[in-house]
Amino acid sequence: MKSVLFGWYIRFLKLCAFFVPIRSNSFVILNGAGRSGSNGYLFYKYLRKEHPELNVTLVEPWPSSHLKWSVWKKIGGAQYIFTTHQPFKIKRKQISFSLWHGIPLKRMGFMAYNTKYHTNKHNMNIWQHQADYIASSSDIYETLMASCVGIDTNKFIRTGFPRLDFLNKPISKRIILKDLFDSDNEKAKIGIYMPTFRYELEDKTIMNQIESGNFFAFDDFDIVALNSTLVENNQYLIVKLHPYEMKLVSAEMKQASNIAFLNNNYLNENDIDLYELLGITDFLMTDFSSIFFDYLLLNRPIIFVSNFLKQYSKARGLLMSPYENIVPGQQVLNQKELQIILKNIDKDPYKERRNKLCTIFFEKDKNCCQSIYELTKRVN
Rank of each mutant, 00 (worst) to 15 (best):
L357T: 03
L201V: 05
K169Y: 11
Q130M: 14
I95A: 03
E245H: 11
L99Y: 06
N233T: 09
P63L: 09
K351P: 00
F292I: 00
D179V: 00
K347W: 08
I259E: 03
K347R: 15
L248K: 15
L298T: 07
V332R: 01
E252R: 10
K121T: 13
M246W: 08
N208Q: 15
Y44P: 05
P104C: 05
T143I: 09
I272Y: 08
T83V: 02
L297A: 11
Q330I: 11
H85D: 14
D348G: 06
F82R: 01
I140N: 12
G77K: 01
A315H: 13
P21I: 00
Y193S: 07
F261M: 09
K356Y: 12
N234S: 12
S96F: 02
Y9G: 02
N214S: 06
L284P: 05
Y275K: 07
D287G: 12
M108H: 11
I75L: 00
F288N: 12
W72L: 02
G76A: 07
V56S: 08
G7Y: 13
S290V: 01
N258Q: 12
N355Q: 15
K240I: 00
H85T: 10
D203L: 10
L230H: 07
L262Y: 02
K187V: 00
F218E: 07
V249K: 10
R198H: 10
L338R: 08
I29K: 04
L180Y: 14
G329R: 06
G102I: 07
E363F: 01
F218Q: 02
I210P: 06
F215W: 12
V224Q: 12
F308A: 09
F88N: 00
L201N: 05
A33D: 15
F293H: 06
D179I: 02
K178S: 14
N39H: 09
G160R: 07
N355Y: 15
N227F: 05
G34S: 11
Q335H: 04
F161A: 03
Y9N: 04
N120K: 05
K178Q: 14
